[in-house]
Write a protein that binds this DNA or RNA. Structure first.
Length: 219
DNA sequence: ATCCCGAGGG
DNA sequence: CCCTCTGGAT
């Protein structure tokens, strides 16, 4: 007999309440409210520290201020500029391709719907949801590896498919809380519920956690 | 050595 | 479903 939806929602509420009290300062690490800047910064953030993204974007955002500017950018030059964030060839290509699409199909503006965002080259489900939630104030859960892992361990989602995890989270979390929960789960994943050696003894939701592997890293 | 606030391609 | 792309942190 599977846990009922109402039961799972109640569990999720308890978890979120506790995380909310533990991480009142939880927020997205890349705080660009400008949609284009947030979009570019989020693309650069893949497999890269926030510090380095902030470092690289400082110069980048002075040079490129519009989608048109990125669309006309020299590929080799942009590759050099984003080099230290890793995946530099793919990222530079993605940014230019995305910008060309913004100019050609959206008047140089960053669109506001999930479908339009993910249709942009280089923009996937995670990046699109970051933009929706943090630049446009729409309820949106961005499933990065932290949110995925923490959701699995806390039993908020069961699937191995990130897409389904996203949907299961949306099912169990109140819509108004989506963006906030995204930040809370990411913060918890970075600070405590880490991939390799989770700090279970210090975990604020240990009592609510059904993960079979909990605390064993320290046994 | 292994993983990471991903996405596209085969 | 698998693989690849990359530097950096641990």
């Amino acid at each position: 007999m599977a846990e009922s939806l109402e039961r799972r929602k109640a569990r999720a509420r308890a978890l979120v309440r506790r995380l909310e009290r533990t991480y009142p300062d939880a927020r997205i690490a890349l705080t660009f409210s400008n949609p284009l800047e947030l979009l570019v910064a989020t693309i650069l953030a893949a497999q890269c520290t926030d510090e380095r993204v902030n470092q690289v974007t400082q110069g980048l955002f002075k040079k490129y201020r519009t989608a048109e500017a990125y669309a006309k950018a020299d590929l080799a030059a942009l590759e050099r500029e984003v080099y230290s964030t890793g995946f530099f060839k793919a990222k530079a290509r993605a940014i230019i391709g995305m910008a060309k699409d913004l100019v050609a199909k959206h008047g140089g503006q960053v669109p506001r719907s999930l479908g339009e965002l993910t249709a942009l080259p280089g923009v996937g489900r995670k990046t699109a949801n970051v933009v929706l939630g943090n630049a446009y104030g729409q309820p949106a859960i961005a499933v990065d590896t932290h949110v995925f892992r923490v959701s699995q361990r806390l039993g908020l989602a069961k699937s191995e498919d990130p897409e389904k995890v996203h949907d299961q989270l949306c099912q169990v979390i109140a819509r108004a809380k989506w963006t906030r929960v995204s930040h809370l789960l990411t913060t918890h994943g970075r600070r405590v519920c880490t991939a390799r050696s989770p700090a279970c003894p210090d975990c604020p939701v240990l009592a609510l956690c059904p993960w079979p592997g909990k605390t064993r890293a320290f046994a």
